[in-house]
Design a protein around this nucleic acid. Sequence first.
RNA 1: GUCCCCGUAGCUCAGUUGGAUAGAGCGUUUGCCUCCUAAGCGAAAGGUCGACGGUUCAAUUCCGCCCGGGGACGCCA
Length: 580
Amino acid sequence: MKQYIQQLLSNCVNNLKDKGLLEADIQPKIIVDNTKDRSHGDFATNLAMQLSKAMKKNPRDVAALIIEQLPNDEKIQKIEIAGPGFINFYQNASNLGAQVKKLATEANLGIKNTDNPQTIVVDYSSPNVAKEMAVHHIRSTVIGDSVVRVLEFLGNKVIRANHIGDWGTQFGMLIAYLEKAEQENANDLKVSDLEAFYREAKKLYDEDAVFAEKARGYVVKLQSGDQYCYQMWQKLVKMTMDLNQQIYDRLNVSLTDKDVMGESLYNDMLPKIVEDLKNKKLAVENQGAMVVYLDEFRGKDGNPMGVIVQKSDGGYLYTTTDIACAKYRVDVLHANRILCFADSRQHSHLLQAWQIARLAGYVPDTVSLEHESFGMMLGKDGKPFKTRTGGTVKLTDLIDEAEIRAQKLFENRETDFTPEEKKKVIHEVAVGAIKYADLSKNRTTDYIFDWDNMLSFDGNTSPYLQYAYTRICSIFRKAGDCAELGDVTLIHENEVNLASKLIQFEETVKNVAEKGMPHILCNYLYELSGLFMKFYETCPINKSDVDEQTKASRLTVCRATAAVLKQGLNLLGINVLEKM
RNA sequence: GUCCCCGUAGCUCAGUUGGAUAGAGCGUUUGCCUCCUAAGCGAAAGGUCGACGGUUCAAUUCCGCCCGGGGACGCCA
């Protein structure tokens, strides 16, 4: 509808030009907004105010001229000039009702796949091997996974890339420690606490000279392709990812072992990359290291900053890996668009790596590289988040705590749930709350970690949206067999408001896909749920004094709302419930 | 020192490519279950949008300069 009005206005501008009322070379941006206030109609444009200077008339007169040019249209009930020169459009209620019915009845909510599907690589989660996933991993994991779902929903080919930290000098130490642990535990080693594993390895490395010597030897062997070390390294990777997979499964995150594309994947490419950069005169030697100087980035002295792509000892750095990684995603994965969900501290590093990749011709201008950065997790004191003991909070502990709190909440309610149903509700509510706490915030800003905030079940939270859905399910249960959907006739103000919001689902989802920001969808779903709650309070359905036609109409509105909520929550990676 | 992100109600956060009276949640005060689930709805209180300039018919939004917070700045990732 918005685009429809945009088209009408565009025609209108051309008419004005034909009539000589407007210079032909003026190209106004035609913007149609959803109004914030119902008294301003459904849609508004500021076109008249934009044109008023060029046409040398006051904005309200320009608005009148524009309206004169617009054809009568059955979808539009009324057009008004308001305030300083806004043009407000009132949508015909039956047109609005027809769109709601489409949402309720058509597959995929009437949303068609995008005309030009892209291959999009989404780089997210990225835990480190031999480290436990902690609360700060949740942002990349949960936000990235939601964007993946949104892009797929719109018909794109999405390649999930879990860029795990599986390479580095610490692996010598870890292999040596794993070897020791295996010897001590015969053939049945189970590691459930990676933090302890890493801590013990580090302790031995620092205190035991013989162990440290062996560890250093293993690094060299691993890097030169030694079979034994390679197998031990693989065990460490598997050990970690098996534990991480449990977390992904618990959190309903769509990543699997097939999506793992760790740093080590690009190892073989690194020597060739450096060689190529040297040949292209991009990399030059400085104090034994290979360095690329970039004009765009200045160092402390104001001179172009050198980005080291190969150390003086011949080793490579993560910048080199990220250059190779970008090349791989273009050459092998055929990406049209690459999204990288990583925290803001990596911003300049990524820009440098990508700039080099572009200069070297690995990534053409047609492929976009986007750092979907997010802020840091801070403590209540505004400093980077740490627990009292200086550590961080494990993701598993966070989920456990959420389930404990959800269970407590549940125990105060009277329900007829079976133990299985009860368990499911507690789980989905707890996980939804955690994910929504992260998803609903604009990812670019730093945010404060707070147990009570993150594990809240009231107000603007996932349970609120899930609850709205269960209320609809309850209505249909009550209506039973006579739940016939009918044409939508919008009578009550709360019905109209709900319907207007419902039809904004598609543009909201597209906005999320473009910006990589699921909080836009969260806000939308929260507003939608709020409007539904108001509708629920004021527009009865299963009551004896409601006539059949009204009932059928409202059931359609309910069906449409349920469809949007279910699909919307699904795009956030949150499951709906029939009852709670 | 250079560069990046941020500063909105007591707290946590929204605020669409500049638009009409800056919005939620939590917390506080308070009304509503003989009526489709009260994990809900209604009402009230709470703001120099960090400060000052500039551009514009219009600035929380764009530009400049300060102040404050966080971060990144050659051989870690």
